[in-house]
């Protein structure tokens, strides 16, 4: 733009930034204020009252909800479990499908592919019934295992593996590398960027789950932080300690936002190149 500042762009983008940053700021401010004042709608725009509420919610939580440190622990376990589990089984199945010829290979591929069309939400009731049959209700396994199977990760790795040049495979074989060594020493390092990107996407996916934990874990010891917050709000009518709700909301946003911001570069690349 001829070296001049593009004011229109700065104004539009500035408003965009505020659209997200301002509500976040209000949540942060509200967490430090007197709940009675928030309840009357007299929220000041500047923090007051200090951040001791964070220590309180971490240690005690709210009535009827586990302490926030415990909610965070469950969420963290669930997010990491789902991310690592998905990556692990997807790498293995994509490797098998891309680098081997075995009976029913394409049937396996299409079976996995088909699950793309069955997100957990549309099959909640019947999946719940199957889980109950296995005795997995109210277990950590029940919380994570059904969310681990994923077609997207498998498809992404298959694509990456198919793009590995034949010469590389030949060279490895010439050097006497078997299929296991090839996977460990060549294929995994080559796909490191994909693994990083997927980890971010899947961590956020696992952390943000609401419907599945709501169904499968009625025991409050398995409450995730997202479940905990919704429980704290309830129907939103009785006297709620809003400062605690807002502090918990801040703590619920912190880990996934940190992961996304810190690994932004890989994450954006992985998301847009994987086409989902």
């Amino acid at each position: 733009m001829n070296g001049r500042t593009d004011w229109t762009a700065h104004i539009v983008l500035g408003l965009g930034v505020l659209l997200f940053a301002l509500p976040l700021w209000l949540v942060l401010v509200a967490s430090t204020q007197d709940p009675a004042m928030i309840g009357r709608g007299e929220l000041s725009l500047w923090p007051g009252g200090g951040f001791s509420v964070y220590a309180t919610v971490l240690r005690e939580g709210s009535p009827g909800v586990a302490p926030v440190w415990h909610l965070l622990l469950v969420s963290f376990g669930m997010a990491v479990g789902i991310a690592v589990g998905k990556i692990l089984i997807s790498v293995l199945s994509a490797y098998a499908i891309a680098f081997f010829r075995f009976p029913c290979r394409m049937l396996c591929f299409w079976t996995i592919f088909f699950t793309l069309m069955l997100p957990v939400e549309v099959r909640i009731i019947p999946t719940y019934a199957v889980m109950a049959g296995f005795g997995l209700i109210n277990t950590f396994t029940g919380l994570t295992l059904p969310l681990i199977a994923s077609a997207t990760a498998t498809l992404l790795f298959r694509q990456t593996f198919l793009a590995v040049p034949d010469e590389l495979v030949e060279a490895a074989r010439m050097d006497g590398a078997g299929p296991l060594r090839f996977l460990r020493d060549i294929l995994l390092p080559v796909s490191a960027a994909n693994v990083a990107a997927l980890f971010v996407i899947l961590f956020v996916y696992g952390w943000n789950q609401y419907l599945w934990p709501l169904l499968v874990a009625t025991d409050s010891r398995l409450d995730t932080i997202v479940i905990g917050i919704v429980k704290m709000i309830g129907t939103g009518d009785t006297s709620i300690e809003w400062n605690r709700v807002m502090a918990t909301a801040v703590l619920a946003m912190l880990p996934p936002v940190a992961v996304v911001v810190l690994m932004q570069h890989w994450f954006v690349k992985g998301l847009t190149e994987g086409d989902k």
Partner: peptide, 12 residues
């Protein structure tokens, strides 16, 4: 500043 809200849970 425009990408971070990706990480916010729908319920949050």
């Amino acid at each position: 500043m425009l990408i971070w809200p990706y990480a916010v849970a729908p319920a949050v």
